[in-house]
């Protein structure tokens, strides 16, 4: 991961600031940076979103392709995650340099989506055992300025919200052979309900306190952090400790509580932004990377 070199004095400055609930950029410990969300930025995908959180810049494209359901789940479609840490973010990711981080993030995404409530997978089934929709969720890391996991989750949620899957019908003739018919109307499509899609809140332990949405500098001061994936109702679906340091159990519970509180607010504001953008309809001026 892109890293910054901090001197001892700089670290002390950040740690003391966090203790006083005042961070280098003026935020409190539970404040996020300004988040920019835009959906439908890549027109040849089923759904896409770009999220910018401080200097962290993520583009997610969702492509729906037809495939066969998995043997153990014959009447469900499934999601595939792929994270590309492009060299754009940092030269260290050139060639195969970003593969490890990419796999780590993709595995985390698999884990937080690995429960029945997050996405209605049965709606992705076309005909049991034979055809289903596979949603390829491809995450592209364009710039990293700290707090990758949260940003990626916001972007994935926004892209899934934006995803439109064409409606298909299965026609069966007398001999029992099946035929798949695609709807003629391009606006006739199914949408996924993303109300229960969780978002990750990363809590970084700095000194005796913890902060959300840490910048690169703050991440350099922190020894360990906790990823908590929270749904909009405040239910924790997954938790993971990352980093080289250790955490004591009491602080983990404190961090979980903060995670739930912050997660609920995050979900509420993301929903309102997405619905607001949706209500503008096709008249919306697309900004993309030109703005």
């Amino acid at each position: 991961m892109a890293s910054v070199a901090l001197s001892e004095a700089e670290k002390v400055y950040i740690v003391h600031g966090v203790q006083e609930d005042l961070r280098v950029d003026g935020r409190g410990c539970e404040d996020y940076r300004y988040v920019e969300v835009e959906t439908d930025v890549v027109s040849n995908t089923s759904g896409s979103a770009r999220v910018k959180l401080g200097h962290t810049d993520i583009l997610v494209g969702v492509k729906a392709e037809m495939g066969t359901p998995k043997l153990e789940k014959p009447n469900e479609g499934y999601l595939e995650f792929f994270v590309d840490c492009s060299a754009n973010a940092t030269p260290e990711f050139e060639g195969r340099g970003g593969d490890d981080l990419g796999t780590e993030i993709a595995n985390t995404l698999y884990r937080i989506f690995n429960n029945k409530s997050s996405v209605d997978l049965q709606s992705l089934c076309i005909s049991p055992r034979e055809h289903c929709w596979i949603l390829y969720v491809d995450v592209l890391l364009l710039e990293c300025g700290g707090n990758l996991f949260d940003t990626i989750c916001i972007a994935v949620k926004a892209a899934l919200f934006n995803t439109r899957i064409p409606r298909v019908r299965v026609l069966e003739d007398e001999e029992g052979s099946k035929d798949i018919e695609l709807s003629d109307d391009p606006y006739d499509c199914i949408r996924l309900s993303v109300d229960n899609v969780p978002c990750i809140v990363t809590l970084c332990k700095i000194g005796y306190r913890h902060v959300v949405d840490a910048t690169l500098q703050e991440e350099a001061c922190s020894l360990a952090s906790l990823l908590v994936s929270v749904t909009s109702t405040g239910v924790v679906t997954c938790m993971r400790k990352v980093g080289k340091g250790s955490l004591d159990p009491e602080s983990i519970f404190e961090m979980m509580e903060t995670g739930k509180r912050v997660g609920k607010v995050l979900h509420a504001s993301l929903q309102s932004v997405l619905h607001k953008e949706e209500s503008l309809g096709p008249k919306r001026q697309k900004v993309g990377f030109l703005g």
Binding site: V42, S48, V62, D84, Y136, D138
Partner: peptide, 21 residues
């Protein structure tokens, strides 16, 4: 001069398996 070209997996009509390499 060191150049790397990559194209996002979702950039083409049909999904690509690898962005570069």
């Amino acid at each position: 001069v060191n150049c790397q070209y990559s194209s996002a997996t979702f950039s083409t009509g049909e999904r690509k398996r690898r962005p570069h390499g």
